[in-house]
Each structure stands twice: as structure tokens, then as C-alpha cells.
Design a protein around this nucleic acid. Structure first.
Length: 218
DNA sequence: AAGACCTCCAACCGCGGAACG
DNA sequence: ACGTTCCGCGGTTGGAGGTCT
């Protein structure tokens, strides 16, 4: 429609953030289309919601995942597959987007490591390995992860509220080993496991929140 | 030094479902 | 019951910054 043509897209500016924060505080984090309109932001409601959910929400943690969180992600993903929002609900302060990104990055690494391993010990079956590996990698981390490793026919009803109790999961041992390896490597390379919070975030959020005296509103 | 390549993550898109009139 | 609007989810993309060659 006519409106869509003047909608802003792309990265949010600090002013936009401040404006959105103000209106969310005023009207709550619902009715995003309404918020987008009354705020005067030239953004869609969808875009506003996303910015709030993934970045501005003060309940969010920022910075590197802790090892505990990493474990939790792996464990929950093994139970639920790519149900990112569901996984995120179990990990306070983390968003589905963050977890999704984390998973993709780390599973890609794992897949690459596995590829290396299997090229050292190639399977007897295939000669056109690179193509099939590409496919396998994609399946593994893009489409439900470890669910794919389940034995065929084990799949029960939908994933609704199974909480993994009845799901048979196969490769957690491997995953734990990989995690241990990763942590060892991190220590060897003298990287702190508890990652540092991004200085950019420190700066911008701090300044953003400082600018607001929420007691003046409401 | 600089270009190529890689990693990370913010943001967008499309779709399905819930809510509402 | 049906159409419309809005919300939330999962998948994907693009760009910034870092690393490698």
C-alpha cells in the first residue's frame, strides 16, 4: 500500500530505540501496529516488535552464552528440534533469534569438524562425498537438528509437550564430548569462558536507560 | 597492506494461527 | 461461519568486523 513505501527498514538508530522504548513503556508491549503508528516511527509493527523482543527488552541478557546456557540449548534442541521460541522460554534472558543464531553457528562448526573427520576416515559408500556432505550438514543443523538422528519410526505424535520424556535421543554423548573439547580448546587459547559483554551494548543500553526516568511515566 | 574469506548477529520475510468483528 | 487483522515463529539474508593468505 501507500504507507509501505515510506516505511523505514534496516538498522535501528539510537533515536528510534529511545522512541520505541518510550512508547512501549507507555502502552505496553502489545498492539505493535498501534504502537508503530502512535510512536511516529516509520517502522512496521512487526519491525518494532522484533526490535523490542530481540534487543530493547530490559529483561534480556547480552553477550556470550555461558557454558550452562550452551548445554541447555543443546539439551533442549535435542528434545524439541528447531522450536527456538520454546527453547528460549526455558533460558531466561535469551531470545529465540539469539539461540537460533548460536545453534546455526556452532552446528556449522560441528558439521565441518565431522566432515574433516569423515574425510580422514571416508565412508565406504560414497565417492561424490562433498556434495552429500553438504546436504547432510544442512539437514543436520537446519531442519530439526538431532531429531533427524532419531530412529525411524520412533517419532511419536507432535512435539507438543513431550518435554523429551518419551523422545529417544541418540547423540548427547557425542555432544557432551564436543562441548568438553570446545571448552578445553577455549581454555588453551586463554579465552575466558564467561564471555565479556559487548562494550557497544554497555554503552548504548546504559545510555539509553539512563536517559529515561521511568517514574515520570505511568 | 590488501583482498578474500569467514563468523556473527540484527533484521527481514513468509507463513500459520489466534483473536476479533 | 467467514474475512480481516495482528502476533509470533522459523527460516533466511546481508552487512560489519575479524581472520587468514
Amino acid at each position: 500500500m501507500v504507507q509501505e513505501e515510506i516505511m523505514r527498514r534496516g538498522p535501528w538508530t539510537e533515536e528510534e530505540d529511545v522512541q520505541l522504548l518510550f512508547y512501549v513503556k507507555l502502552f505496553g508491549d502489545r498492539r505493535w501496529d498501534f504502537l508503530a503508528k502512535v510512536s511516529g516511527l516509520k517502522r512496521t509493527g512487526k519491525s518494532c516488535r522484533l526490535r523490542w523482543v530481540n534487543y530493547l527488552n530490559p529483561d534480556l541478557k547480552h553477550g556470550k552464552m555461558t557454558p550452562q546456557e550452551e548445554r541447555l540449548v543443546l539439551e533442549l534442541h535435542s528434545k524439541w528440534g528447531n522450536r527456538w521460541s520454546r527453547i528460549a522460554r526455558k533460558i531466561p534472558g535469551r531470545t529465540d533469534n539469539e539461540i537460533k543464531n548460536y545453534w546455526r553457528t556452532h552446528m556449522r562448526k560441528k558439521a565441518q569438524e565431522q566432515r574433516k573427520k569423515s574425510s580422514v576416515f571416508p565412508s565406504s559408500s560414497s565417492s561424490s562425498s562433498s556434495i552429500t556432505h553438504e546436504k547432510n550438514e544442512r539437514n543436520f543443523y537446519d531442519t530439526g537438528g538431532l531429531k533427524l538422528l532419531q530412529v525411524e519410526g520412533e517419532k511419536k505424535s507432535s512435539d507438543q509437550e513431550q518435554d523429551g520424556k518419551s523422545m529417544k535421543v541418540y547423540s548427547m554423548d557425542e555432544i557432551w564430548k564436543d562441548i568438553e573439547l570446545l571448552e578445553e580448546n577455549e581454555e588453551k587459547m586463554n579465552k575466558p569462558i564467561m564471555g565479556s559483554i559487548s562494550p557497544l551494548w554497555d554503552y548504548s543500553l546504559e545510555s539509553l536507560w539512563k536517559d529515561f526516568d521511568w517514574n515520570n511515566f505511568r
